[in-house]
């Protein structure tokens, strides 16, 4: 299974994602430039965090028109795996690959902290090794993570995968770091092969960084791909 990490102008988490796949998972990975029009021999494409195009206009609004995004949409449509982390999630929303949109954090502050995530859906490509209701500790670092969606659009096009919760899994207003509707932290498309989330699993995959809970997302993707094979 081969991974690709897309680099947009202003991405800043691409090296962490690359490191995770290369050093922690030990799988082949390469960078994909935003100007590329094809994802050659990539099975799982990661859209990393950062501030693509300076977050001008809206986070992800300009990056979604990058040449590579046509290839990402094609890849997703063909059953390939796509993981959007933070700004990558915002790009997936702007591109319409997942429903909804991001608003400024309710606090108007850039939130940089560990959060707990309750896994709501273990049928996606990136959560199949999780237990239902499992709680993961993963950090967030964002200013625009206040998720907003028309509930009908969400029901028609997406599945809630992660909610901000307490350490024991209770979903409470206090556990919501940014004002997201229904504490939503991450989503999948209906098929479960495209997942986006605001927290950063790539920096919570090694003990030296304070935790390994984030590793399960990528390990799930590897397992999924080994079981299903290329579509």
């Amino acid at each position: 299974m081969r991974f690709g990490v897309v680099v947009f102008p202003g991405s800043n988490c691409e090296r962490d994602c690359f490191h995770l796949v290369d050093q922690v998972l030990g799988r082949p990975v390469r960078y994909v430039w935003h100007q590329d029009t094809a994802l050659e021999r990539v099975d799982c494409v990661i859209l990393p965090g950062g501030f693509s195009y300076g977050d001008y206009l809206r986070p992800g609004a300009i990056a979604r028109f990058s040449p590579v995004m046509g290839a990402v949409a094609e890849h997703a449509g063909a059953g390939g795996l796509v993981l959007g982390i933070c700004n990558g999630f915002q790009i997936l929303l702007e591109a319409g690959l997942l429903p909804g949109a991001m608003l400024r954090n309710r606090s108007l502050q850039f939130q940089c902290q560990d959060v707990f995530l309750r896994v709501e859906d273990v049928e996606t490509a990136f959560t199949r090794l999780c237990r239902p209701g499992q709680v993961l500790k993963v950090p967030i670092k964002h200013g625009d993570g206040n998720y907003h969606v028309d509930p009908e659009d969400l029901a028609a096009r997406g599945r809630v995968v992660f909610r901000y919760s307490e350490a024991d899994g209770r979903v409470t207003p206090e556990a919501n770091p940014n004002g997201s509707m229904a504490n939503i932290a991450g989503l999948a498309n209906l098929e479960g092969n495209v997942v986006g989330l605001m927290p950063h699993p790539e920096v919570s995959a090694e003990e030296v960084l304070g935790g390994t809970d984030g590793r399960v997302l990528l390990e799930s993707a590897v397992r999924y791909w080994e079981e299903r094979g290329p579509c």
């Binding site: 400024r104 606090s107 108007l108 907003h148 004002g179």
Partner: peptide, 14 residues
Amino acid sequence: TLRAGVLDPQGAAT
């Protein structure tokens, strides 16, 4: 402009 019913943290702080 933000649609009616969409929370506006900047507007509220202002």
